[in-house]
Design a protein around this nucleic acid. Structure first.
Lengths: 343, 343
DNA sequence: ATTCAACTTGCATACGTATGCAGAAAGATC
DNA sequence: GATCTTTCTGCATACGTATGCAAGTTGAAT
């Protein structure tokens, strides 16, 4: 049952060469003659040898492991991002080590130690913030960090987000242009930059359009909280005629409440707009008008900054914001002429 | 910028003891006096020392890494399982290294090499099969494998699934009892044991109830394919009055086609039943009647068999099937008295 | 005080690989 | 063919930790 580990020494003996020769054959860019390479590869093939990544990492200081810290995968945006990140990194010879964490400083703190124990080459956090103390530790350990879909002021932390401020503004424009007059907002978690920025952009946009914000509640990026917020906001007689929900995940819950508990028609009685454009948003059951976060481009940016730091020793902190379009679908009244003028 | 790696030697010097002493303090169950432990821990604390998991693995032969091979995360069942698996394993001091793979032998094959390069202590495959050649390689390398939600005949492979045969049968009973007479099946991928077993159970159940199977198409566990199948099956005049769809992920697509393309009422015109009970199934928009795969118990079983092999050197192959209840909701006509008699 | 057992500790070595260095081999140039 | 480059190879060592072994310490029991 126990494994017969085959090592570079075994291969060396079989091929009648030194262990260093074997190592060099498996090290891209090392100096080996074609004859030697052939001999070694043949022996390796026969024995089924493959270099031990962990032993290698001990010398090179590179583990080819990227730590991914993530709080929850319920919101479809994150599994989607995870899949893309993993695939992209695999193409570069890296792999993702997953760390699930509760989204508070204590949770992140506890996990960060384990993360460094594995000698990860880099860290990506998704949907998770990071205390400055932790940022300092990672910097001290020489491990680059990229915050994915979350911003933070710390000057050591790279970050990739969509342009949340601008996104919020676009949605405000859209709803205002649609002639809505009582507009509500069920916001993303106010403890997150994304939540705050979307709200700020939305408020700014409404103000510019001369429309007031009828109601605003923190939905905590949580289905239940968002549903409760919807019940509250839409309780009275003078209910809103539009609501911007801080992400799609909550928007689905809100739509369910509006339709199935309050028997409201969307978009007849009320317009709903979300944020993210997760796959589910385009399914007919919801057909949600939403601002797309281009996860493919966000992933690209994340991977390239991370690899820039790791492989090219880059050290300029990136704060990347990526613009996304408003995906106009059927959950919100479409302003007259809106579609034409965007062609 | 470069890291100041602090090693056990540094700690040893600071504490005025040998390196082995430091190692022992950080090795549970090793022999150390309280005084020594205190000295070492103090020094470690001051220097911010933490053992290097990778270096340790070189000696112990244990990496505390579990490889997870997964084909796609679009079906909500898998992110959910991933989250649970990761959390459960973390509690035991293990972490998950992710390998995305296309679901064919070539894809799995290519990735399996990388997997072993990382000296993983165990492998979990989710939604992915494994050739016998690969099973042999893992066995030879002494790495235990658990197939999660997929069966395979190979006698070396552990597997954890729901009781798909029985599940299919339950659904047949339910639909037959509901008085449906033209029953169709949009099956799970016939290349997977889950797809085949659910279909077989379903057929057996219908036969026992004396009802024929009006139509049966492979949906490939894919939204598009399933939607196309629905269009095909429901094209003619004598359309089915019920359809069992091989998993929830496809069922949502089918429901969308029935409602929004064919303008059929669910369950008035046609009953739809799914399989998995992903979170989305219980959301009001779909409110899908479906057979629950108890992912919490499946994860428990997976983790405990895997750790049994790794830590206790177990070597009896487990083929675990876990029963799940039919979650009766609103997407399928409920047989008279069905709910009462199950109380 | 003596003997013995039970605990602790340090020394040395091993895990599997990469790499600086120096020497060997192979071409290149005249 | 002699000399100088260039390319290749082996030797030795290092990475950070765990562990068998023997020596040392402690304390209990006589």
């Amino acid at each position: 049952m126990r494994a017969e580990k085959v090592t570079s020494v075994d291969v060396a003996m079989r091929a009648g060469v030194s262990q260093s020769a074997v190592s060099r054959v498996f090290t891209p860019g090392a100096s080996v003659s074609p004859k030697m390479a052939e001999k070694v590869l043949k022996a390796a093939q026969e024995l089924g040898y493959r270099p031990n990544v962990l032993a290698r990492s001990l010398i090179t200081g590179r583990s080819r492991i990227i730590g991914l810290v993530v709080a929850y995968l319920e919101n479809q945006f994150y599994p989607d991002a995870l899949e893309r990140l993993s695939t992209a990194l695999q193409a570069h010879g890296y792999h993702i080590l997953v760390f699930m964490v509760s989204n508070d400083d204590a949770g992140v703190d506890r996990v960060m130690g384990e993360l460094l124990d594995y000698q990860v080459d880099g860290i990506i956090t998704a949907s998770v913030g990071m205390s400055n103390a932790l940022a300092a530790r990672c910097a001290a350990a020489g491990v680059p960090v990229v915050l994915f879909n979350r911003g933070q002021d710390d000057h050591r932390l790279n970050q990739v987000t969509s342009n949340n401020l601008e996104g919020g503004r676009k949605i405000a424009d859209f709803l205002a242009a649609g002639g809505h007059r009582r507009i509500a907002h069920i916001a993303g978690w106010s403890g997150s930059s994304t939540g705050r920025d979307r709200e700020a952009g939305f408020r700014a946009g409404l103000e510019a359009a001369g429309v007031g914000l009828a109601a605003c509640v923190d939905g905590m990026y949580n289905r239940e909280t968002a549903a409760a917020a919807a019940r509250e906001i839409f309780a009275g007689d003078d209910r809103p005629d539009a609501v911007f929900v801080g992400n799609d995940h909550m928007a689905f819950a809100v739509m369910d409440v509006l339709r199935f508990e309050l028997n409201l028609d969307i978009p007849g009685d009320v317009s709903v707009v979300g944020y993210d454009d997760v796959p589910l948003a385009s399914w007919p059951a919801y057909n949600l008008t939403t601002l797309r976060q281009p996860s493919n481009r966000m992933v690209e940016a994340t991977v390239s900054t991370l690899l820039g730091w790791i492989e090219e020793g880059s050290s300029d902190v990136q704060k990347i914001q990526i613009d996304g379009p408003l995906m106009v679908r059927g959950s919100a009244r479409i302003p007259e002429g809106w579609l034409d003028e965007r062609l």
